[in-house]
Lab assay of single mutants.
Amino acid sequence: MQRVNMIMAESPGLITICLLGYLLSAECTVFLDHENANKILNRPKRYNSGKLEEFVQGNLERECMEEKCSFEEAREVFENTERTTEFWKQYVDGDQCESNPCLNGGSCKDDINSYECWCPFGFEGKNCELDVTCNIKNGRCEQFCKNSADNKVVCSCTEGYRLAENQKSCEPAVPFPCGRVSVSQTSKLTRAETVFPDVDYVNSTEAETILDNITQSTQSFNDFTRVVGGEDAKPGQFPWQVVLNGKVDAFCGGSIVNEKWIVTAAHCVETGVKITVVAGEHNIEETEHTEQKRNVIRIIPHHNYNAAINKYNHDIALLELDEPLVLNSYVTPICIADKEYTNIFLKFGSGYVSGWGRVFHKGRSALVLQYLRVPLVDRATCLRSTKFTIYNNMFCAGFHEGGRDSCQGDSGGPHVTEVEGTSFLTGIISWGEECAMKGKYGIYTKVSRYVNWIKEKTKLT
C-alpha cells in the first residue's frame, strides 16, 4: 500500500490518463441519441435557420407576430419608411378606419389613436360632414345658397324668414311668412316636400332668348283662358290664391305678392273693366268669414305684352289694390325667389296649380277651390304637342294621358313649387288646347323671366 501511494504521488498524470480511459469505455446513459432527441424537440425550422439574422431580410411573422416588435424591426421587413409607417399605425392600436367614419364618399386613412378623412370636392370637416359648395344638395341650405369668396357655403332665406341657429334652416321672422300653410287642420295635408338634388348652379339658368321682337298675326285659340281631375282644397291650404270678379264672377285667378299687390295673367284683364279681388276665398257660393274683398285701382301688364300681336306672350300683369290686405292664416303671400332659384325650383319637376275653373272641358265651374299636382314636361315634348308657338318664356306641365289639367277660369292662378315646406311661385296658368285632352298640356308663363320686374313694381313704400 505504501508503494502504491508513492507511485500516485510521483505520477499524477498517469492516474488522470487511467481515469479518462475508464470513462470513455463506459456506456453513456444520461444523453439520448440524435434521433430520439429530435422526437422530443420537434420544432419547425425557421426561415433563416442556421444563418445569422443580421444578414437576412426581415420576416413579418418572425419579427412582429411571434413577439412584439419595434418600429426598427418592422422597418427591416418593409425596407421602406412609408410602408412601415402605414403598417405601424394599425399594428400599434388597430384600424381606426374600420367603422368607416368618413361621410359623403370620403376616404379614410388610419393613424395612431386617430384617423384622417380625405374629402371629395365640396366637403370638409373631420368626417367630411361639412358642405362647402352650393353645387351639392344646395349646400344643405333649406332655401338659398351662395358661395363666399373663400368658396364656403353661405345660406340665406327669402323675405319674412331668418336663418336658424344651425345656419342652414329657415324659420319665420314674421307672423305670416310667405308660402307657408298655417291653418292647423290643413298642415297635415301639406304636399310632399321637395329635397334639393345635386345641381350645376353655374349652368342652372337656361341660355334662352326671349323672342321679344317676333311679330306674329293673332292666333285663334280655343278655350285658351284655361282644375280638371283635381281635388277639393281645404280652407287655408292655398292662402296665396285669390279669385278675380268682373263682368262675371271667378273669371280668373291670381296670387298675393304682398298686402297691396296681386300677380295674374295679362290676358285676364281689360282696361276700363272694374275688377274686384277676393282673398281668403274657399267656396265661392258661401260666406265663410275668411274672405277679404278689395278693388283694383291700377293694372300693370308687362311692358312687352301686346294682345294685338299675341294674347299669351309675356302673359303676366300686376294688380294694385285700393287697401292693403290683412295677412292671416287664410290670406298669405306666395314666396318669389330670384331668377336663378325660381328656375331651379321649376326644374324640380312638379308643381301645384289651383283655381275655381271648370271641372271638365266646357263644363261647370268649381264651387270649392280645386288643386292638382302636375309634372313638368320637357321642352321637346311640349313643342311636338301643339302647332302653336311655345315661346321661351312659357313652359308645359300636365299629363300625356289627359284627364287632369287646369281649365277655363283658372287662368292667372299660381303654379307653385314647394321647397322644404315653403311654396314659391314658378308659373302662372296661361293657356292650353281644350282641357285635359290626351297628348295636350297646360301652358304656363315662366315666372323666372319676370321676377325682377315683379319685385321692382310691387315694392311697398
Results as ranks from 00 to 15, higher is better:
residue 453 W to V: 01
residue 390 I to F: 10
residue 305 Y to W: 10
residue 192 A to Q: 08
residue 419 V to W: 09
residue 82 E to W: 04
residue 80 N to M: 05
residue 354 S to Q: 14
residue 141 C to L: 00
residue 162 R to E: 09
residue 236 G to P: 04
residue 90 Q to E: 07
residue 380 A to V: 08
residue 298 R to F: 03
residue 40 I to H: 15
residue 251 F to E: 07
residue 207 A to W: 11
residue 76 E to T: 15
residue 298 R to V: 03
residue 413 G to F: 04
residue 101 P to Q: 02
residue 217 S to A: 07
residue 247 K to S: 10
residue 338 D to A: 07
residue 124 E to V: 05
residue 285 E to S: 10
residue 429 I to G: 12
residue 353 V to P: 01
residue 19 L to E: 02
residue 366 A to G: 10
residue 394 M to K: 03
residue 129 E to T: 02
residue 97 C to E: 01
residue 444 Y to A: 02
residue 414 P to D: 03
residue 3 R to H: 07
residue 126 K to P: 13
residue 320 E to A: 03
residue 457 K to I: 14
residue 40 I to R: 14
residue 96 Q to E: 13
residue 23 L to N: 03
residue 321 L to R: 01
residue 184 S to I: 13
residue 263 V to D: 01
residue 288 E to N: 06
residue 327 L to C: 04
residue 427 G to Y: 01
residue 235 P to L: 09
residue 178 C to T: 01
residue 30 V to W: 14
residue 168 K to Q: 10
residue 203 N to K: 11
residue 197 P to Y: 12
residue 260 K to Q: 05
residue 145 C to Y: 00
residue 11 S to T: 11
residue 387 K to C: 03
residue 97 C to Y: 00
residue 121 F to Y: 12
residue 219 Q to S: 05
residue 190 T to E: 10
residue 396 C to V: 02
residue 256 I to T: 01
residue 416 V to N: 03
residue 104 N to A: 02
residue 426 T to R: 00
residue 450 Y to H: 03
residue 216 Q to C: 06
residue 410 D to T: 12
residue 142 E to F: 03
residue 104 N to D: 01
residue 159 E to S: 09
residue 9 A to W: 14
residue 51 K to S: 09
residue 363 G to I: 06
residue 82 E to T: 15
residue 31 F to H: 08
residue 381 T to Q: 13
residue 181 V to A: 11
residue 433 E to W: 05
residue 180 R to P: 02
residue 256 I to Y: 01
residue 338 D to K: 05
residue 456 E to W: 07
residue 195 V to C: 05
residue 371 Y to C: 06
residue 270 E to Q: 12
residue 143 Q to M: 07
residue 201 Y to R: 12
residue 408 Q to P: 12
residue 313 N to P: 03
residue 95 D to G: 06
residue 45 K to C: 04
residue 324 P to L: 03
residue 379 R to M: 15
residue 459 K to I: 13
residue 396 C to Y: 00
residue 461 T to H: 14
residue 57 Q to F: 06
residue 256 I to Q: 01
residue 270 E to F: 08
residue 4 V to G: 11
residue 323 E to D: 10
residue 297 I to K: 11
residue 360 F to T: 15
residue 395 F to G: 02
residue 97 C to T: 01
residue 450 Y to Q: 00
residue 425 L to R: 00
residue 423 S to C: 08
residue 459 K to R: 07
residue 309 I to Q: 13
residue 342 T to K: 00
residue 262 I to F: 02
residue 387 K to E: 11
residue 72 E to H: 15
residue 280 G to T: 00
residue 408 Q to M: 12
residue 279 A to V: 03
residue 25 S to H: 05
residue 215 T to N: 10
residue 303 H to K: 12
residue 85 T to Q: 09
residue 336 I to D: 01
residue 442 G to S: 10
residue 362 K to M: 09
residue 156 S to V: 05
residue 424 F to D: 01
residue 56 V to S: 15
residue 310 N to A: 10
residue 234 K to R: 11
residue 185 Q to F: 12
residue 38 N to L: 09
residue 179 G to A: 01
residue 379 R to D: 08
residue 73 E to S: 15
residue 45 K to F: 05
residue 412 G to L: 10
residue 40 I to K: 15
residue 412 G to Q: 04
residue 16 T to V: 10
residue 20 L to F: 11
residue 42 N to Y: 08
residue 382 C to M: 02
residue 322 D to S: 07
residue 106 G to N: 01
residue 189 L to D: 12
residue 88 W to G: 15
residue 56 V to A: 12
residue 195 V to S: 13
residue 103 L to H: 11
residue 15 I to A: 06
residue 331 V to Y: 00
residue 448 S to F: 02
residue 442 G to P: 04
residue 180 R to W: 04
residue 357 G to M: 13
residue 32 L to G: 15
residue 458 T to P: 01
residue 51 K to I: 05
residue 124 E to R: 04
residue 122 G to T: 03
residue 17 I to R: 03
residue 406 S to N: 14
residue 65 M to F: 10
residue 134 C to I: 02
residue 94 G to I: 09
residue 406 S to W: 15
residue 448 S to W: 02
residue 160 G to E: 03
residue 324 P to T: 03
residue 60 L to I: 15
residue 37 A to N: 03
residue 128 C to G: 00
residue 443 I to G: 02
residue 181 V to I: 11
residue 253 G to N: 02
residue 358 R to N: 08
residue 159 E to G: 07
residue 156 S to W: 14
residue 147 N to I: 09
residue 196 F to R: 08
residue 355 G to L: 08
residue 344 I to Q: 08
residue 42 N to F: 06
residue 327 L to M: 12
residue 29 T to C: 09
residue 303 H to N: 09
residue 126 K to F: 10
residue 329 S to N: 15
residue 423 S to V: 10
residue 51 K to T: 07
residue 167 Q to P: 03
residue 318 L to P: 00
residue 124 E to P: 02
residue 368 V to N: 07
residue 390 I to P: 09
residue 459 K to W: 05
residue 269 V to C: 09
residue 325 L to Y: 03
residue 12 P to R: 09
residue 194 T to V: 13
residue 356 W to S: 03
residue 209 T to K: 09
residue 35 E to S: 10
residue 289 H to Q: 06
residue 215 T to P: 12
residue 418 E to C: 07
residue 319 L to Q: 01
residue 274 K to H: 10
residue 98 E to Y: 09
residue 53 E to S: 08
residue 318 L to R: 00
residue 407 C to R: 05
residue 196 F to E: 10
residue 14 L to N: 03
residue 335 C to Q: 01
residue 272 G to A: 08
residue 138 N to W: 04
residue 199 V to M: 13
residue 452 N to D: 15
residue 407 C to T: 04
residue 14 L to F: 12
residue 77 V to A: 11
residue 336 I to H: 01
residue 6 M to L: 13
residue 11 S to D: 04
residue 394 M to R: 03
residue 428 I to V: 11
residue 75 R to H: 15
residue 377 V to K: 04
residue 142 E to S: 11
residue 459 K to C: 10
residue 4 V to Y: 06
residue 88 W to I: 15
residue 167 Q to E: 07
residue 422 T to M: 03
residue 429 I to R: 14
residue 404 R to P: 15
residue 320 E to D: 01
residue 429 I to T: 15
residue 3 R to C: 13
residue 446 K to Q: 05
residue 457 K to S: 11
residue 30 V to H: 15
residue 349 G to E: 04
residue 235 P to T: 06
residue 151 N to F: 10
residue 352 Y to R: 06
residue 124 E to F: 06
residue 199 V to Q: 10
residue 193 E to G: 12
residue 76 E to K: 15
residue 252 C to V: 00
residue 89 K to H: 11
residue 357 G to Y: 14
residue 21 G to P: 05
residue 236 G to S: 05
residue 2 Q to F: 10
residue 408 Q to W: 14
residue 337 A to H: 01
residue 455 K to S: 06
residue 242 V to L: 02
residue 33 D to I: 08
residue 388 F to C: 06
residue 174 V to I: 09
residue 306 N to W: 03
residue 125 G to R: 00
residue 98 E to I: 08
residue 408 Q to N: 14
residue 127 N to P: 01
residue 295 N to F: 06
residue 359 V to E: 06
residue 353 V to Y: 04
residue 129 E to Q: 06
residue 238 F to G: 02
residue 66 E to N: 08
residue 364 R to M: 10
residue 122 G to M: 04
residue 257 V to N: 01
residue 416 V to C: 06
residue 75 R to D: 15
residue 37 A to V: 15
residue 211 L to N: 09
residue 114 S to Y: 07
residue 311 K to F: 05
residue 56 V to R: 08
residue 60 L to S: 15
residue 160 G to K: 00
residue 437 M to S: 14
residue 3 R to A: 12
residue 65 M to G: 03
residue 49 S to K: 08
residue 219 Q to N: 08
residue 434 E to Q: 12
residue 54 E to C: 04
residue 378 D to A: 13
residue 57 Q to M: 06
residue 306 N to K: 11
residue 394 M to I: 10
residue 4 V to N: 11
residue 444 Y to W: 01
residue 247 K to D: 13
residue 304 N to Q: 13
residue 333 P to Q: 04
residue 267 H to P: 00
residue 287 T to N: 13
residue 108 C to K: 01
residue 116 E to F: 09
residue 354 S to A: 15
residue 300 I to W: 05
residue 189 L to A: 11
residue 334 I to T: 02
residue 146 K to E: 13
residue 364 R to S: 14
residue 426 T to Y: 01
residue 228 V to K: 10
residue 37 A to W: 04
residue 175 P to K: 12
residue 19 L to S: 03
residue 370 Q to K: 10
residue 317 A to E: 00
residue 304 N to R: 11
residue 433 E to F: 10
residue 156 S to L: 06
residue 187 S to M: 11
residue 408 Q to C: 14
residue 218 T to K: 11
residue 329 S to I: 04
residue 160 G to L: 01
residue 444 Y to L: 05
residue 282 H to T: 12
residue 114 S to C: 04
residue 91 Y to S: 15
residue 271 T to Q: 10
residue 72 E to C: 04
residue 420 E to V: 11
residue 117 C to Y: 01
residue 157 C to Y: 01
residue 41 L to F: 09
residue 345 F to P: 01
residue 18 C to I: 14
residue 258 N to R: 02
residue 13 G to K: 14
residue 145 C to K: 00
residue 357 G to V: 14
residue 200 D to Q: 08
residue 296 V to L: 02
residue 221 F to P: 13
residue 195 V to R: 12
residue 370 Q to G: 08
residue 321 L to N: 00
residue 245 N to D: 06
residue 175 P to T: 08
residue 379 R to F: 14
residue 282 H to C: 05
residue 420 E to G: 15
residue 274 K to A: 09
residue 168 K to D: 02
residue 174 V to K: 08
residue 17 I to V: 08
residue 45 K to A: 15
residue 293 K to Y: 13
residue 253 G to T: 11
residue 393 N to F: 04
residue 456 E to Q: 14
residue 367 L to T: 14
residue 219 Q to L: 07
residue 106 G to A: 06
residue 344 I to K: 15
residue 328 N to L: 01
residue 134 C to M: 02
residue 5 N to Q: 11
residue 298 R to L: 03
residue 428 I to K: 02
residue 234 K to P: 06
residue 317 A to L: 02
residue 159 E to P: 06
residue 321 L to T: 02
residue 166 N to V: 01
residue 269 V to F: 04
residue 249 D to N: 05
residue 8 M to S: 14
residue 71 F to M: 15
residue 400 H to G: 14
residue 174 V to L: 07
